[in-house]
Structures are given as C-alpha cells and as structure tokens.
C-alpha cells in the first residue's frame, strides 16, 4: 500500500484564506450558513450577493472553481428532492414549460436549491483551504467537548486507512472475477462490509493497546507549545 497523498477535499495553498485561523473560518462558515438559511426564499438578490461573497473568497484563495464544483456533486441527491417538490406540493398552480406545477412548491424548490448549494460551496471552501488537523484545532479552540474532537481526530486519521483497506478488498474481489452489477451479488458486498467492520473494530482495539502502552489513561494529554 502506498502512502495516501493529501485529503481529497484539501487544496494546498498559501493564500490569506488558507492562513486565516481555523476557528475564525469555522465561525464565519457557521454565521454565513445561518444567515443563508434564515433568508426568505423570495429575496432573490440576497442569494446573488451570497454567491458573489463565496466567489470572491474562492477567488482570493486561488482554489480552482472546477475543483469545488466537481466536489459539490455530493449535493445531487438533494437536488433530485428539490426537483420533486413543485410536483408534489399543494396550493395554487402555474404553468412552466407546459407542465402544471405548484407555486409554493416551486418557491420551496428554489429555496432548497439555492440554500443547499450555497451551504455546500461554503463548506467545501472551508475544507479546501483548511488542513483537517487545523480544523480540529479550531474546533478545540472553540471549546467543543474534547471527546468529540478526539472522535473526529480519529476519523480523520483512519479514514484513509479504512478506505485503503476497502479498496484492497475490492481489488481482491474483482481479481477473482467478481462484479457487483446484479442485486443477486449484494450478499457478497454485505459480507465484505461486515469483514471491513470487524477489521476496523479490531484495528480500533490494537490502536487502543498501543495507546495504553504509551501511558494513555483515558484523557488526551494537552500538548501545548506548538511552534
């Protein structure tokens, strides 16, 4: 197994946005998201302004727009839901492209679309300009309970390891002629997922042993004085 290189969300850079303290960025993201969600759907100009703000921040950070757009595909399932709304909502109806749709549903779909996209873009910008461990430090500085920060830290650390393991299992399956095109083959996938779970669980136990061996007593030591 080769070493993973970089988290898939982070885009290396040295801009002002990259260098800003992580806890500040988290607070700004939180504030921005709350503001966007609280804005009534009819204030179309406001959403344009929000998008402009994100565009400016992304421009300053020098993260390529395509880099963010590709990753914002994660939003697609929500979009599908948004597209359904005009057809299922009640109330007065109007005609769009020859289809009769609900007016309130249309507005709700627009609001969901606009707010969702803005939220996703803003979060991706944060992720692209902040290293995961800086993010954790930021959360710690914001006084998030240390247990939660620890759990997230382990997640960040072992995400690559577990995905690597999953990838190797997939390669090993496919090397033996397996392909999961057919629902009849899903039991195999389920068993793989089970094996992966057991392996991750056992790794968790080994990590715990290694921590105990270095004197872990249940609390992360506070390590200050990072230069």
């Amino acid at each position: 197994m080769g070493a993973g290189h970089g988290h898939k969300l982070h885009y290396h850079g040295h801009s002002v946005v990259h260098r800003a303290p992580a806890h500040l960025k988290i607070l700004v993201l939180l504030g921005f998201t709350v503001l966007v969600v609280a804005t009534p759907g009819e204030w179309y100009a406001a959403f344009g302004a929000y998008l402009l703000v994100i565009a400016v921040v992304v421009g300053v950070s020098r993260v390529p727009a395509t880099y963010l757009l590709k990753r914002s595909l994660i939003e697609v399932p929500f979009l599908a839901f948004a597209l359904l709304l005009p057809f299922v909502a009640h109330g007065p109806r109007t005609d769009v492209l020859g289809l009769s749709v609900s007016e309130s549903g249309l507005l709700a779909a627009w609001a969901l679309l606009a707010k969702g996209t803005l939220g996703v873009l803003a979060s991706l910008t944060l992720a692209a300009t902040t290293e995961p461990h800086e993010l954790l430090h930021g959360l710690e500085r914001l006084r998030l309970p240390s247990q939660l920060v620890q759990i997230m830290a382990f997640m960040v650390r072992y995400l690559d390891v577990v995905t690597g393991e999953m990838q190797r299992m997939k390669v090993a399956r496919e090397s033996r002629g397996f392909s999961a095109r057919d629902p009849r083959q899903w039991p195999v996938l389920a068993r793989s997922a089970g094996a992966l779970f057991i392996r991750s669980y056992e790794r968790g136990e080994r990590v715990h042993l290694a921590m105990l061996s270095r004197g872990y007593t249940g609390r992360m030591p506070r390590i200050e004085g990072r230069p």
Partner: peptide, 10 residues
C-alpha cells in the same frame, strides 16, 4: 503495524 501506533494528526 505503524498505523496502529500513529493516530494523531502530525
């Protein structure tokens, strides 16, 4: 397995 031993961010 060094991955068991190295679990911090840096």
């Amino acid at each position: 397995d060094p991955d068991d031993q190295l679990f911090m961010g840096t």
